[in-house]
Amino acid sequence: MKRSDIKELPDYFDNYINLNEDTELTEAFDKSLKQIDDVDLEQLKRIGFKVYAEGKWTINEIIQHLTDWERIWCYRTMLGARQEGSVPSGHDHIAMADNSNANDLTIEQLLAELRAVRVATKAMFDAFNHEVLSVNCRFKDTQMSVFAMGYNIIGHQLHHFNVIKERYVPLAD
């Protein structure tokens, strides 16, 4: 199945889902891993802790946010996929970033953790059959299929990597 096979796009998260190409989910996960592997470490090191505007996250905080966010979304996905029945609440990504120690870690550490989480996420989705992928996940005030959750997770990375490219890379000079 491809991204275009998603029957209902949830408000707000459709932005992340639609950032994906119209490819098979496993191919989208493979491309997301390649995107992590292809990061220019030297460029990110030149950027360091610079931000493009006051109050914005550092590159380290963005990478930590991606990892934290993905773990939360995998939990939500698993609850839905296994039809556990509870409806997880939202989370405060600002509080999580404020309380992370991302700026105490190296960019290599953060990217290695993100990659490890992404490999585990891909393995989870690879284990889901068509029936499981069709199950609706409910959380807070939203619902989407397990299948859409996969593209949502990948699209979130695409979004933040686009922000890094557009707003942070110019700071490397």
Results as ranks from 00 to 15, higher is better:
Ala127Cys: 08
Thr106Leu: 04
Met1Lys: 03
Tyr12Leu: 09
Glu24Asp: 15
Thr58Leu: 10
Leu105Ala: 10
Thr23Leu: 14
Asp104Arg: 08
Lys140Pro: 00
Ile153Leu: 06
Asn152Ala: 14
Phe49Gln: 15
Leu25Val: 10
Leu66His: 12
Leu44Pro: 03
Ser32Asn: 15
Thr23Pro: 01
Ile164Ala: 01
Asn60Glu: 12
Glu42Ile: 06
Met1Arg: 03
Leu41Glu: 06
Arg167Leu: 05
Phe147Val: 01
His160Gln: 02
Leu158Trp: 07
Trp69Thr: 15
Phe13Tyr: 11
Ala81Cys: 03
Ala127Thr: 08
Asn99Thr: 11
Leu33Ile: 15
Asp40His: 07
Glu70Ile: 06
His93Asp: 15
Ile164Val: 11
Asp5Phe: 00
His159Asn: 03
Phe125Pro: 03
His91Asn: 14
Lys140Tyr: 07
Thr23Glu: 14
Lys34Tyr: 09
Ile153Asn: 00
Tyr16Gly: 06
Asp38Trp: 08
Glu113Ser: 08
Arg115Pro: 05
Gly85Cys: 02
Lys31Ile: 08
Asp14Trp: 00
Leu9Lys: 04
Trp57Arg: 04
Ser100Phe: 09
Ser4Gln: 04
Thr77Met: 08
Ile59His: 12
Cys74Gly: 06
Ala148Cys: 05
Ser86Pro: 03
Leu79Pro: 00
Leu19Val: 04
Thr142Phe: 06
Arg76Lys: 07
Leu158Lys: 04
Thr23Phe: 11
Phe147Gln: 08
Glu84Tyr: 00
Leu158Asn: 10
Asp30Met: 10
Gly80Ser: 12
Tyr168Pro: 06
Arg76Pro: 03
Glu54Cys: 01
Gln64Leu: 04
Leu114Tyr: 09
Val51Thr: 15
Met149Val: 02
Gly48Arg: 05
Gly155Ser: 07
Ala127His: 04
Asn99Val: 03
His130Ile: 08
Glu24Asn: 11
Thr77Glu: 08
Asp98Thr: 07
Arg46Lys: 15
Asp30Lys: 14
Val146Asp: 03
Leu105Met: 10
Asn103Gln: 12
Gly55Gln: 09
Asp30His: 09
Leu33Trp: 11
Gln35Lys: 13
Lys122Gly: 06
Lys165Arg: 14
Arg138Trp: 01
Met1Gln: 05
Tyr168Trp: 09
Asp40Asn: 15
Tyr168Ala: 08
Ala97Arg: 10
Gly55Thr: 09
Glu166Val: 00
Ala53Asp: 15
Phe139Thr: 00
Gly90Phe: 06
Asn136His: 10
Lys50Ile: 07
Gln35Glu: 15
Trp57Asn: 02
Glu8Arg: 00
Leu105Arg: 11
Gly90Ile: 08
Phe139Asp: 01
Arg138Ala: 05
Cys137Met: 02
Ile6Met: 08
Thr26Met: 13
Leu19Ala: 08
Pro88Ser: 05
Gln64Arg: 04
Asp14Pro: 00
Thr121Trp: 01
Gln35Trp: 10
Tyr12Glu: 06
Glu24Phe: 11
His91Ala: 15
Met124Pro: 02
Glu42His: 09
Tyr75Met: 06
Leu41Arg: 12
Lys31Arg: 14
Asp38Gln: 14
His65Phe: 13
Cys74His: 05
Ile107Glu: 07
Gln83Ala: 04
Gly55Val: 05
Gln83Val: 01
His130Val: 10
Ala53Ser: 15
Glu21Lys: 14
Val146Lys: 03
Ser134Leu: 06
